[in-house]
């Protein structure tokens, strides 16, 4: 039995179990925090930063991502404020140029008033949330899809030695993808492409 931890989220007293994240505790208490790269079957990844919340610790205000930050006794959390909304808005404005057609992004953009064309478009239909890569590695243990490249060159690619054999009979990651990239990639026959070939290439 894990220990109980009491914390305050948006002024509400919340009881959580030690080892839980702020996100899990909030959801359990019925408080919604937006997420994009989070999936409860997978290790927290902390890439999209959309779940950013504010915590007060040692009297100081700090922003943390709720999908990674573990609950602490007496922690004070705010999941919504003008600053948080602005951070989420800018984050969405940075992701929209990548995947302007993404349903989850459009929905959040509407909520936070994010403009789709504030930044230069570079549509790849992929926001590099890593859900497919991590699902394939952590749940399926198949490692048929992976990241290649670093920094702004980073992209997702099928592993040619594995993908053609594993993917056609699985396709479980398709429904996870917020950008719609995987479906598109397979329909274009990219499963057997060499790893250096851009999957998330510009349409």
């Amino acid at each position: 039995m894990s220990r109980k931890v009491r914390l305050e989220i948006d002024g509400k007293q919340v009881e959580a179990e030690e080892g839980m994240t702020i996100l899990q505790a909030a959801r359990k208490a019925g408080i919604e925090i937006p997420t994009l790269c989070y999936n409860d079957q997978l290790e927290p990844y902390g890439a999209c930063r959309i779940c950013t919340v504010e915590i007060i610790k040692d009297g100081r205000k700090r922003y943390v991502v709720s999908c990674v930050y573990p609950v602490e006794e007496g922690l004070k959390v705010r999941t919504d404020s003008e600053e948080i909304r602005k951070i989420r808005k800018t984050l969405l404005e940075l992701m929209l140029p990548l995947a302007p057609a993404s349903g989850p992004l459009k929905e959040l953009a509407e909520k936070y008033g994010a403009r789709a064309n504030r930044f230069q478009a570079e549509p790849t239909a992929c926001i590099l949330c890593g859900l497919c890569v991590r699902y394939c590695a952590e749940v399926k243990k198949a490692n048929a899809i992976c990241f290649i490249g670093r920094g702004t060159e980073r992209q997702v690619a099928f592993v040619p030695e594995v993908a053609p054999y594993e993917c056609p009979s699985c396709r479980q990651c398709y429904s996870l993808c917020p950008g719609g990239k995987i479906v598109e990639a397979e329909s274009q026959g990219l499963l057997s492409m060499p790893i250096t070939q851009k999957v998330a290439r510009k349409p």
């Binding site: 930063r49 984050l91 940075l94 992701m95 930044f119 590099l128 920094g151 980073r154």
Partner: peptide, 21 residues
């Protein structure tokens, strides 16, 4: 900095790219 970003998180990867633009 943009070319040294590991590319994992959105603010750094996309933010620096757009700031550079």
């Amino acid at each position: 900095l943009s070319s040294e970003s590991c590319g994992k998180c959105v603010p750094c990867r996309e933010g620096l790219k757009q700031a550079l633009n």
